[in-house]
Structure formats: structure tokens, C-alpha cells
Design a protein around this nucleic acid. Structure first.
Lengths: 327, 327
DNA sequence: CTGAAAGCGCTTACAG
DNA sequence: CTGAAAGCGCTTACAG
């Protein structure tokens, strides 16, 4: 059943059916005839033939570093929902944390003629820029920013600054900051800087900086060293996963959180309210951010104006993992 | 840059280039010529034109009930990885737990000409069967089974039976089983039945059955009632999420796990080893299951033989959430 | 408002 | 082994 069949049955030309399908001007009588034929036959146009001519696929590619992370899932859910509403389809490409595959996927999505690419970025290298340049389709960065491209970022600096002030206000003065590599601008640098600003405004504060990976296991191993070396009253973790590791490590040493050690996370993963104690954290609105980035992407595709940077909001969530040392 | 350009530059016919691309028989000299031209020009064939003729897209659709679940993510990662190796592309459709949308996606993926559909099923209704029938492409069920269709299932019954025996051996005799709706055959019925078999083999055992949803929050609310009503020594939870809720609820009541209350989970989510105490659970190998289902799907597409049911393995993981009452 | 024709970029018998 | 031609199912000027 193709457009020719429908045309024949309806007694019109193929081009007329095509016009009907694409919202061209049609006489009332023919419109009704075609409409009923399509309904009866259950006809639906072949996407490949459409795309072959029209050069527009109504598909958006999203490249993610991993599928098994709260931030990724939530963002994807938001993108997917928004795209569905706007009549676009989401194509997900998972790189399993390989930067090389990230580059490959930029090219292969372009080859697949997606109308745009949303990249949940961790790092923007020269190869990325080269690929962006080469594919000539709209690119939207999520989670990291770059002067040349449109991006949606979380307010890592402000969130960290505010969370930092929050724990200082509770009286913590000897704090271990447990962060990640500075290759990651957003998580590695911005969060650290926001925290640093908070402590710089608080006299009599002592801080030590440590580094670990994004893996919970590595945090579990790292935290005991920090405790022994530095004896902080609070560990300020750059991600919720790191905080989860810190909590586990503390529990395993028989330390009671927050009485013996306070912990904060970052991200606002659902699991932070399920642990015991619940973890104080800066919550990002990933699902919402996904929706916005999808909206932005479609604006880009339609050639509309869009500011280079969109800032997503955050919220500090106080739970039980931080002890109040003073009042 | 299309196949005609390549043909012209190489001084051969389009059909010859096409044959080169698709592994037909080609003279050594022409092969080299075409090869070098393609390399120089960076040509790559238009997917839509290919699919329009060839009727094969090398795409597999996977329908998932949600994106934010450990089981889903892991399974998808496995499917994706395996498909990549076999030169297929994965298209993910997320239904956000809507059965209606599940049906819709079966049709729309078929319209998109995916070569097969992997359905991470929760429930198989008549509409599903109707859709399977209508689309006429290979269907592979994951997580649930149906006589008429190929499926990959986890060994819910045996896993539950073995986990049940395990906790009975530790001396638990008054147990609350906290399950989910029987609409879900695998999780709602099979796990319950496996557990039931274990207790039926243990004289002097008292058991009460309760039901909740898949949501952690609901378990948190439900568990206190169970404790007050029934005072079990152990709560046998049908999923890890439910166990997580039970653990939180117990902690919130000031109960120490496992001293005051033992808890078991089901699924083997990573988070169960991060909680304190770690949760005893039956671990399913989701990633592996994803790989296998992808392999099976490709076999189906190639018209190869495949048994209706493939059983994925499990492993009982003992951690600290279960107290040893006797030795 | 409607139709005939060309063309999008491939693949696939068919002939040689 | 290679080529000319038809066709996959649409869309899009162009005419009327």
C-alpha cells in the first residue's frame, strides 16, 4: 500500500495525496475523499522515501556517556518527552565513556541525517570541535559549555557556593573536599570553585582538597584515607555517588553519620533520600533540563534565535547527613 | 556526493559500485579503483535510499517501560553492545509505563521498518498479541514469557526458591513476603511461588503475604504496617527497590538491620552493596541477558532456529542484611 | 485547486 | 565480472 494506491483508489494524482499529507491546499471534496481512503486502508507513508526527498528526518540524536546513571536517565526522559510532543523522534547513542566513540557517533548520526545532535558532554576536545564543524547540523551541549556552541548547563558554581555556605553556617570548619578530575570543567572545576568561594568568605576555616573518580567503589577506598589523614568534620563530595561511597565507608568504620562525620552530596539523585541518613545535596533538575535542551534544539533547527547559554536551576536539599555544630 | 559521482570518478557503472559496497563479485582492478575513490571522497551511502530499496534497515527497536531503572539500563547496555558488534543499530522507545504507548510503539517501530522488536515486557495483553500478529516482524520478549513468542526470561522461580531456602536455613521462621501485583507474571507470581515452595519444604514455618508497588516510597509506607501487624523476623522483598524501602523504614523506626529485622531483596542492583548493611539478594545478569536477547533477535531475523525460551542465570548474593538465627 | 513528470540515491534482476 | 535500465515511495517545481 503506497501513495500511488491511495491516489488510484481516491481517483486523484499522487501529488495531490502528497499535498494532503503535507498540508498543502486542497479542495474540500478531494480532502474528504483522500481522508476516508487513508482511514480505510490504514495507509501510512514510507519514512525512508520521505526522508530521501525531504532531507529532514525529524530525528534528534542524543549522545550519552553512559546509560546507567541517574543524571543521564532523567535527562533522556525529559528530552524524549519533549521531543514526542514536538513530533520528533529521539535516537540515543551510548558511548560507554569512550571519547573516541563520542566523535564517531557525531559523524554517524549526521550520516543518518538526524536534524540535530544533543551531546551530554563531559569534555570538549579539538576532535569534538572538528566534528561539530564538519557535520554542519545544529549541536546542543548539555552539562558543559563552550563559547562557540549552544549549551545548557547546570549552575554548578552557584549551587556549590550555596551548599558550601550552608554547611559553614552549621559550624563546620574543618572540611575535606572530595572532587574529581579538572578535565571535567563543570564537575571538576566549577563545583570546586563555588565551594572555594564559600570558604574564602568564612574566616577560620580549614580545607583540604582530595580527588577521586566518579565511581562509588573508588570513593569507598579513598574516604578512609581522608579520615585518617585529615580528620574532617565534614566531607563535601562533588557528586552524590561519591557521597554514597563516603557514607558506606563511614558506616563500615563504625562511624555514625552525621554525629561522627557529616557528608554532603551533589546532584540530587533519588537514592540520596533513601539512604539512612538521607544525604544533604544540591539538586539539579535533570528532567527539566532535558526538556529545555530539546526545546532549544528544535528552535535551532527552525533557525530561530537562541542565546548561547541556558542555565538550569538547582535547589539545596537539607537532610540528615550534616550535623549542626553551632546554633 | 552520491553513488553516481563515485561511479563516474572511478569510471565504472553505478551498479558496480553498489556491488562493491554490498560484497558482490568484483574484479581485482575495479575493486581497487573504487576503494581508492571512496577513500578519497569520504563517500558513504545514503541510508534512506538503501533502506528504501533493500527493505532492511539493520535497526532493532527496543521498547522499555522506563529509562530510570537499573534492570532497564543494564539490559539496554547489553543489547546495545551486542548489536554494535553485529552491525545493527539500537532504537530505544520509552513508554513511561504506559501499556497503550507500548502498543503504539510496536506499530510505529514496524512502520519505521526496524528488522525486529525486543520488548521488555511487564504484561502481555491481547492488544500486544494483536500487534505482534499485525507487524509481521520478529518479536523477542525479555523478562516475561508467552507460548507463542520467543522470550528471554530470568529464572524467577528457581532464584526465589533458592533464596527462600537460604534464609530458612539461617533459622527464620516467621517471614513476611512483600510482593507486587500478580498481573506481572515474573515478579508478581513466579517469585512468590518459588518462595512458597521453599517454605512448604520447611516445617514449622509461618508466612504472611503482603503487596505493594514497585515504588520505593510505597514500600517505605507499607513496611511499618507489616512490622506492627505481623512482627516478622525477616521481610522477603520481591525487588531490590522494595528492600531499599524496607531498610529505610526500619532505620527510621530505629530498628537495626539485621539485628532487629532481616531483609532480602531481588534483582541484584548495584546499590544493594552500597547500603549499610549490604542487602542479601538474588542477582540477575541483566547486561548478559541483554546481549543474549540481541543475539537471539539477529538469529530470528536471519531465519535461524531458536528455542522459544532462553533462561538467563542468577546468583544468590549473601550480604549483611540477614541475621543468622541458628547454626 | 490539481496533475504529469522528474528526481532523491540506492539496489536488483537481466543481459552480455 | 560489468553495465543499462527499471523501480523503491515519496516530494516538488512547473503548468494549467
Amino acid at each position: 500500500m503506497n501513495i500511488a494506491d491511495i491516489a488510484k483508489i481516491a481517483g486523484v494524482a499522487k501529488s495531490t495525496v502528497s499535498r494532503y499529507l503535507n498540508g498543502g491546499s486542497i479542495g474540500e471534496a478531494t480532502r474528504k475523499k483522500i481522508e476516508s481512503v487513508i482511514k480505510e486502508t490504514g495507509y501510512s507513508p514510507n519514512k525512508f522515501a520521505q526522508s530521501l526527498k525531504a532531507k529532514r528526518t525529524n530525528m534528534i540524536g542524543t549522545i550519552v556517556p553512559r546509560l546507567d546513571s541517574y543524571a543521564t536517565s532523567q535527562t533522556l526522559i525529559g528530552i524524549d518527552k519533549q521531543l514526542l510532543d514536538m513530533n520528533f523522534q529521539l535516537v540515543i547513542s551510548n558511548t560507554s565513556q569512550s571519547l573516541d566513540r563520542e566523535i564517531e557517533y557525531i559523524y554517524s548520526l549526521a550520516k543518518q541525517k538526524v536534524d540535530g545532535i544533543i551531546l551530554m558532554a563531559t569534555e570538549i576536545t579539538d576532535s569534538h570541535l572538528e566534528a561539530f564543524e564538519a557535520v554542519k547540523i545544529p549541536i546542543m551541549l548539555v552539562g558543559q559549555q563552550h563559547d562557540q556552541y549552544h549549551s545548557l548547563i547546570h549552575d554548578d558554581f552557584e549551587a556549590s557556593y550555596e551548599l558550601g555556605k550552608n554547611v559553614l553556617k552549621k559550624g563546620h570548619r574543618k572540611i575535606a573536599y572530595l572532587g574529581v578530575s579538572e578535565k571535567d570543567i563543570a564537575v571538576g572545576i566549577k563545583r570546586k570553585e563555588g565551594f572555594r568561594k564559600a570558604v574564602s568568605e568564612q574566616p577560620g576555616c580549614e580545607v583540604a582538597f582530595f580527588e577521586t573518580s566518579f565511581k562509588i567503589e573508588d570513593a569507598i577506598k579513598k574516604v578512609p584515607e581522608i579520615i585518617e589523614e585529615y580528620h574532617p568534620s565534614l566531607i563535601f563530595c562533588a557528586t552524590d555517588n561519591i557521597a554514597l561511597g563516603a557514607l558506606k565507608a563511614a558506616n563500615m568504620r563504625g562511624l555514625s553519620v552525621p554525629r561522627d562525620l557529616s557528608i554532603t552530596g551533589f546532584g540530587g539523585y533519588d537514592i540520596t533520600k533513601i539512604t539512612y541518613p538521607g544525604i544533604t545535596t544540591a539538586k539539579f533538575h535533570y528532567k527539566e533540563a532535558g526538556k529545555i535542551s530539546a526545546k532549544n534544539m528544535v528552535q535551532l533547527i527552525n533557525g530561530e534565535q537562541l542565546s548561547k547559554i541556558t542555565l538550569s536551576t538547582y535547589k539545596i536539599i537539607e537532610r540528615e547527613s550534616v550535623d549542626k555544630l553551632i546554633d
